[in-house]
């Protein structure tokens, strides 16, 4: 045999071929995934890594289908949410400490568009009409507000409501500028409106 007898051609690279989905059965309730006995069809790599190795699911063998009494025609109970991603959005918003930057020198009254702008600065596009302002009128500049917090309510998809923790920061330049408070978003603050105190205590501060 000579070298010319060992010239090979690549016919197919099986590592880069898309693999068909694989069926697995959950053997316990997993938040955001499903309940015991639910059948998932996933890519083999994901199913293996995320469910089979940790022991959260089993292979859809005939024995396991009988064991977990799988009913594939079972109607999926309709979720009450307006979109599949709304829970994630709600979680993100409830984690947020919204800094509302207001002038330290010019007089102002807090309005929805201030809140909308602050949301946009924090990376959330929130239309004005979905924001419910606190029941009292907040106006400044008033440095005592710096140590207070309140919440606004945001309505997502005209259905779900989230309370977002807000704090007012007085902004100025030069010597007027307030000193930097390290990790201010982690520190607990007094509620501005006594009626909101209970609700604010419910929102976890990261």
């Amino acid at each position: 045999m000579r070298g010319r007898h060992f010239v090979y051609d690549l016919v197919e690279d099986t590592n880069v071929v898309k693999k068909p989905g694989m069926k697995i059965i959950l053997n316990q309730f997993i938040d955001g995934v499903g309940e015991t006995g639910d059948v998932l069809t996933l890519s083999p790599a994901k199913a293996y890594k995320n469910f089979l190795v940790p022991g959260l699911a089993v292979y859809a063998t005939p024995e396991n289908i009988a064991k977990y009494k799988v009913d594939e025609n079972k109607p999926k109970d309709k979720s009450n949410f307006s979109s599949p991603y709304v829970q994630r959005t709600m979680r993100c918003l409830s984690r947020l400490v919204l800094q509302i930057t207001m002038s330290k020198t010019e007089p102002w009254t807090l309005e929805p568009w201030h809140v909308r702008t602050s949301f946009r600065k924090a990376g959330f596009v929130v239309p004005e009409d979905t924001i419910t302002m606190p029941p009292v009128k907040i106006s400044g500049p008033d440095l005592s507000l710096q140590e207070k917090e309140f919440y606004v309510t945001v309505k997502i998809n005209n259905k779900e409501e989230v309370n977002v923790r807000c704090r007012i920061h007085h902004w100025a330049t030069g010597l007027e500028k307030l000193p930097w408070d390290e990790f201010h978003w982690k520190k607990p603050r007094e509620p501005l409106i006594p009626e909101q105190a209970a609700e604010l205590a419910n929102i976890p501060l990261a």
Partner: peptide, 29 residues
Amino acid sequence: VIKGFQKRSDQRRRVPHYWVPVLKRTVVR
């Protein structure tokens, strides 16, 4: 591992080549 030659172009001499499987470390139960 496969040891052999690749003919990459008709105009060129064949080139020695080793085809080695893609290895990854994972967990098996």
